[in-house]
Design a protein around this nucleic acid. Structure first.
Lengths: 212, 212
DNA sequence: GTTTGTACTACACAAATGTGGTGTTTTATT
DNA sequence: AATAAAACACCACATTTGTGTAGTACAAAC
């Protein structure tokens, strides 16, 4: 029997998770809180294996919450549950002591599986997040000064520059005398290379990495 | 009778413009070229009042073209016709000697009006572009070191930061515990204040101006 | 001389975005 | 208490974007 505690400010999601966990053989939800403070003030009374925790919380943030929990006990496992994969938080959370990082849209079955994985010593996370973690360590290799290079083709650099220059796909297409479809095609490939999924992310990355 | 010459690489648009001009009382299209080189090599034979010129041209750019034309004659008026308002080019073009700056989606009637305006000594441009020109001069005032301030409310800065952080509207809404609609509302206002019309532009501006 | 990499185009569909409305609730400031 | 500014929310509609799938053309590399 895996003893779970939930910290999540959305009533709907919190109750949903509780129902899911209590309704599943081998799992039990010991408690559910809408914020970290409540959890921390009663943590000594709890017998818990895994804490499912939201990152965006009113009051003490999930990150800070992790630190406090870990201060109290290193045995308790913490799984971060968040809506989207917000870059910086992933590492902060993992550094603070989280054992896994899941997105909220994770289907129920996968979620239960992840709890079990963590309980069994694993570090469940979505492939998307895993990728970021890998990237992170790759980018922090002490030996190589910089990974230097996201390998964009000349054409890809051109369209990306257009975007950073504030142009729409249509404007870029026009500027380069190619069709909008082709611009879309290039961005599809650029997004894959940069591991992003929106213009904003691409622009930020392009600027930060000096790709333009 | 206003004598017009067109330089535009899109056959469709070039022909369309020619038809419009020749089909209107008081206007005549003396010639139409698909690039600057052709225009320049035959400019001495032309009797022209106004040149409608695209900026994005194969070979010699529209900007360079303007300089060459002006070298030959200061009498000839040049109106830039471009698809979208590409920031930097506006100033280059105006500095090079353009008398006006129009977007291609300008309706026919307005376009003819603009040609007349230029002919009569005006500097027709869309309000959008006029705004940028004004901004430009404001930002280059020698006295004030920096205009310092696009006046965003605290909340607006928060949502903008989210965007620069790579979040989608939904993620931002979730993070701030507000609805997506509200995020959209804020961006509407932010866009107005920054004079932009897309995420990319907003991100670039936010970073460049240090708004985040 | 076939494979590979780059550039290009097209069709389709869901989702997100940009923009115009309207209207309510807070929070300051006078 | 009254007004203004900021924040919030919802509707609606046209575009744009993000992504999958599928195929053509050409030049360099094997």
């Amino acid at each position: 029997m895996i003893k779970v505690v939930i910290v999540e400010d959305s009533n709907t999601i919190r109750e949903g998770l509780k129902l899911l966990i209590d309704g599943t053989e081998g799992y039990h939800c010991e408690a559910a809180y809408s914020n970290c403070e409540d959890l921390l003030s009663s943590i000594k009374k709890l017998d818990v294996d895994v804490i499912l925790m939201d990152i965006d919380l009113p009051g003490i943030s999930g990150i800070e919450g992790i630190r406090e929990i870990k201060k109290y006990s290193n045995e308790i496992l913490i799984l971060i549950l968040t809506v989207y994969d917000e870059n910086d938080l992933i590492f902060e959370a993992l550094c603070a002591g989280a054992s896994g990082y899941l997105v909220k849209k994770t289907p129920p079955a996968k979620l239960l599986e992840a709890i079990k994985e963590a309980y069994d010593g694993g570090a469940p996370m979505t492939s998307n997040i895993a990728r970021k973690v890998v990237d992170y360590f790759q980018n922090n290799k002490p030996v190589h000064e910089k990974v230097e290079s996201i390998d964009l083709t000349p054409r890809e650099k051109e369209v990306l520059s257009g975007l950073v220059g504030g142009s729409s796909y249509k404007a870029i297409a026009d500027h380069l005398h190619i069709s909008v479809e082709t611009v879309r095609f290039h961005f599809r490939n650029i997004y894959k290379k940069l591991h992003v999924h929106s213009q904003s992310e691409a622009v930020v990355k392009a600027i930060k990495e000096g790709l333009v």
